[in-house]
Computed example of a mutant assay.
Amino acid sequence: MERQKLLQFRGHSVTWLVPLLTLLVVAAVDLSTSGDFRVVSWCVFVAALAAVLCGVRTTALFAVLALVTYVGADSAWPAQYREGAGDFLLVLVGGLLSVLAAALRVRGERRMLHMRHVTETTRRTVLRPLPPGWGGLDHAAVYLAADAEARMGGDFYDIQPGPHGTRVLLGDVQGKGLGAVEAAAALLGTFREAGYHEADLATVADRLETRMRRHRAHTAALGRDDGDRFATAVLLGFPEGEHGVVDVVVFGHEAPLAVGRGGVRPLPHGGGLPLGLAELTRGGPPPVLRAAVAPEETLLLVTDGVTEARDRTGAFYPLVDDVADGLVLDPRTAAPGRLVAYVRDRTLRHCGGRLDDDTTIFAVRPRGAGATERGPGGAGAAESGPGGAGRGERTETKAP
């Protein structure tokens, strides 16, 4: 249980010390003061504290100890100074209610942990683990779940190597919940097949658009209210046998950033519509734009949880300027592992840990351009941490 991490000593939970010390203090104060000032009835708070911090059995033990302490301390006084049966019943009933409250709390914690496990398993099914150097790319990713009302978001990313080069996809399905995860899984499935088999990146983009429209039609036929769902995305292609270039297709998303010693610059943006909305125009999928990339430059892709993070004044997080400042202080910030950790920490600092949307930070760089970074976002690492109240974090390199 997470509550056991509140107070530990050498890896063992010592939360029971709080109600124990409270019980000892109440008994000591009651015995050391005059008969006109009795506090022994405060023993009722001991079981209440245990109900908040400890398990059911420990709470029951403290309820009994509190009752025994009350009887012993009250009996030590002459008859005219004793609290009597009224306070005895108070401590007795308070202990019973505390045990009941502890049982309800523990059951709720177990249910929440189970739901967290289900959520993490679902996300790991959608966001498959990526081996280090997968597709010839050094890469790192951080996923921060806003987890509003314990719902999952639709952020997704993947790398697919193939005979025509390595393709990278990052996107964000509109909305939350299992419907968003279902749409993300559909897009990732299409990307993994088309990204491997199709020689033309434009064909991969067209397949993604078609898959999103088919998914929308399916959900609409089922009578669900998310039949108008869409997804913003960035599709990158590293052509086989070509170095220093990357092909870019942007579906209504923020343009990728090239981060290197020379600073931060956005890659070309074709101004395409999100996946599922191409039917609103006659131009079809967005164009494939080719951009030059220096060997030491890392490509940074983020979802709108980063760019739309606000501080207390309502100002958006200045991603480009902040990353540029980080490079001035330490040029090594451009390495994928360091870069995603930097953006994660600065985003959380900017919004005070209050994320309004799920956030994904993904960085890739052709392998061999720099030493593989390990650390926050090191290879194969996975952790949970606070991204605000009730938020979880997933960090891998392949990532509060």
Rank of each mutant, 00 (worst) to 15 (best):
A85W: 11
R82L: 02
L89C: 09
G84K: 02
G72T: 10
R107S: 09
Y81I: 00
L97C: 15
V106W: 02
A85L: 14
S98P: 10
L104Y: 05
V99F: 05
R82F: 04
L104V: 15
V106K: 01
V91L: 03
A102Q: 08
S98D: 12
Q80C: 03
G72E: 12
E109W: 05
G95H: 02
V99Q: 05
W77N: 00
S98Y: 08
Q80P: 00
V99G: 03
E83Q: 11
E83I: 01
A85R: 09
S98W: 06
R82H: 03
E83A: 08
D87S: 11
A102R: 02
D87N: 14
V91I: 10
A85Q: 12
S98A: 15
S98N: 13
L100S: 11
F88L: 15
D87Q: 11
R82Q: 11
P78L: 12
W77H: 05
V106G: 01
V99K: 00
G108S: 14
G94F: 04
L92D: 01
L90P: 01
G84T: 04
G72Q: 12
A73S: 05
F88Y: 10
D74M: 01
L92M: 11
P78C: 06
P78R: 14
R105W: 13
A76R: 06
L92Q: 02
L100M: 13
A101H: 05
L104P: 01
V93M: 10
A73H: 00
G86T: 12
L96E: 05
G95Q: 02
W77D: 00
L96I: 11
L89F: 15
W77V: 00
L104F: 12
W77K: 03
Q80E: 14
L96H: 05
P78N: 13
G94V: 04
V99E: 01
V91C: 05
A79V: 15
V106D: 06
G108Q: 14
L100W: 12
L90K: 12
G94Y: 03
G84F: 03
A102K: 04
V91Q: 01
E83G: 01
G108T: 13
L89N: 06
S98F: 07
A79I: 12
E109D: 07
V99S: 01
G95L: 04
A101S: 14
G108A: 15
E109A: 02
Q80D: 11
W77M: 04
L89R: 08
D74N: 03
A76N: 07
E109Q: 10
L96S: 06
D87R: 07
G108E: 15
R107F: 03
R82W: 04
A79C: 06
L104I: 15
D87W: 09
R82K: 07
G95W: 01
V91R: 00
L100N: 07
V106N: 04
V106I: 11
G72H: 10
A103R: 13
A103T: 08
L89Q: 07
S75P: 07
R105P: 04
A85E: 11
A85T: 12
V99N: 04
G86Y: 09
A101L: 15
A102L: 11
A103M: 10
S98G: 14
E109R: 05
L89E: 08
L92P: 00
G72F: 13
G95K: 01
P78D: 15
L96R: 04
Y81E: 13
Y81K: 05
L100H: 10
L97H: 10
P78F: 12
P78V: 09
L96Y: 07
